[in-house]
Computed example of a mutant assay.
Amino acid sequence: MTSQPLRRRIAFFGSPAWAVPVLEALHRQHQVVLVVTQPDKPAGRGLKLTPCPVAAWAEERGLRVEKPARLRKNLEFLSLFRELAPEVAVTAAYGKILPAELLEVPKYGFLNLHPSDLPKYRGPAPVQWTLINGETETAVCIMQTDVGMDTGPVVARWRTPVGPDETALELSERLRDKGIELLLAALADLEHLQPTPQPPEGTHAPMLHKDDGKIVWERTAQEIYNRHRGVQPWPGSWFEYRGKRVKVVRMSSTVNLANTPPLAPGTVVRMAEALVVATGGGGLSLLEVQPEGKKPMLAADWARGARLQPGDRLF
């Protein structure tokens, strides 16, 4: 007779839509006694205060939700956390550093689902920088949280090749889904986990900013394409032409320009099915763009409408 897995008393810390399937899996198999998210933020034209996706999902199902603006020196929240007495806490894209006094409350500490091959890409944007930097392999880790930024010991790891055309959205969801499997297995075996300490040195994956999506034509075509994959869906790839921003919705990787005379980066090579632009190394095919204030369109159609000619530069 197969024994039923233990139902743990769990507190969950997470905020964006990416974290909702993690909470959903925990809710199915365990007792989620508390959900902690970022505070409500203004959204929409009316700037109405709106809960983050994790809070909205949890509130719809009657789970207890707390949205503290800060955790450090928050005695009221610390008291509540101790009162609820979770056996273990789980974090997935929560977005705040957890203070030591909070980490000490659950008997089995905090487990974090982190989509990178730690100690590579500690920080808030690991998948994005994995792609931007052209990594061909990555991992998802289940880590015991400590007071550092993603520096705690690892209790489970799954490595995988990175698809050559995989975007940040696609890769992050694939890593998350495998991470859920690892997390559930770790929760079933909390008493016997064997954490492996991380080396102190690692790489940082800072939060993306709008300018991280700007196309720098002096980079190679492959570097621009890798960055394009990494900045999906936000901030997206873009360049400016005649003072207006043009978003690149779709592009393809390197075009061989071996039989083309040397051209300055950003120069239009040809306009047929795609708009081919010279870069600091090879050519890049722009397939679909969205000019400022307009709907997406084929890049070649936009180029013809803008009266571009081969030899013109996209500046």
Rank of each mutant, 00 (worst) to 15 (best):
M251I: 11
G109E: 07
I142A: 08
Q198D: 10
G236D: 11
V269W: 03
P199D: 09
L314Q: 06
V54T: 07
P119V: 08
A306M: 01
G266F: 09
T160V: 13
I10V: 15
T220W: 02
E191G: 05
A100T: 15
D177K: 13
N133C: 04
P265H: 11
A306T: 00
C141H: 04
A188N: 13
V33I: 11
V269N: 03
L49N: 06
V147S: 15
A221Y: 02
R28P: 00
P199S: 10
R64I: 05
K67W: 04
L257R: 04
R8F: 13
E60F: 04
N74A: 10
L111M: 13
G293L: 12
N259G: 07
V255P: 01
L63N: 01
L298E: 07
S3N: 05
P53I: 03
E83S: 15
F315N: 14
W234L: 12
P195D: 11
L84Y: 08
H30K: 10
P53Y: 04
L171R: 01
P126V: 05
L187R: 01
V36P: 02
E218K: 13
E273I: 01
P126R: 02
P235I: 12
V268S: 09
S285Y: 09
P51W: 00
L103A: 11
K107Y: 02
V162W: 03
Q144M: 12
V155M: 03
T196N: 11
P199E: 14
T136Y: 00
H27L: 09
E101K: 12
T151Q: 11
K48I: 08
L275R: 07
K120F: 05
K214N: 03
F315D: 13
P164W: 00
L113I: 13
Q232K: 14
R307I: 00
A264Q: 15
L75W: 09
A139C: 09
G46T: 01
V140G: 00
Q144G: 01
K96Q: 15
S116W: 07
G163Q: 07
P261F: 10
T50H: 05
G163A: 14
P195M: 11
R229A: 04
E137Q: 12
L263I: 11
A43G: 06
R28F: 03
E137P: 00
R176I: 06
L190A: 05
L49P: 08
M143F: 07
M207F: 14
A258L: 07
G230I: 02
D165P: 00
L78W: 08
R45C: 02
G230S: 08
G305C: 02
A205S: 14
L6A: 15
L80T: 03
T203G: 05
F81Y: 14
Q128V: 00
L6G: 05
